[in-house]
């Protein structure tokens, strides 16, 4: 099965959709990884949570914090401007 989501750095708690993902789809990160079931439709190049992320916790992409969760986020949820904010 080809990867449909990409984790850029192994410490990232979000992955990027490599194609539009439909709610309920089980996504393959890489071989040997458990699939992630997406809870929302996720557009191409948008982010999906790989783990549960609590309100106020950092969103890690590129191995670095790119913002913080504004609400509790579940694994498989679309991560974007509606549920995360800049720390800058």
């Amino acid at each position: 099965m080809k990867a449909t989501i990409l984790q850029i750095n192994r410490n990232d708690n979000v992955a990027v959709a490599l194609q539009p993902l439909v709610r309920g789809a089980a996504c393959q990160l890489a071989e040997g990884h458990p699939p992630v079931v997406v809870l929302n439709d996720i557009p191409f190049t948008h982010k999906v949570a790989l783990t549960a992320i609590g309100r106020g916790e950092p969103i890690i992409k590129y191995g670095s914090p790119i913002g913080s969760a504004l609400v509790d986020i579940q694994a498989g949820e679309h991560v974007h401007v509606h549920n995360i904010g800049s720390n800058y």
């Binding site: 982010k47 969103i59 590129y62 670095s64 913002g67 720390n87």
Partner: peptide, 18 residues
């Protein structure tokens, strides 16, 4: 940028910085 999936300025910058 937001349409393309970027949520914050630091995320956008990290993309170039990577």
């Amino acid at each position: 940028n937001a349409t393309g999936g970027l949520s914050t300025i630091e995320e956008k910058s990290m993309g170039a910085y990577s």
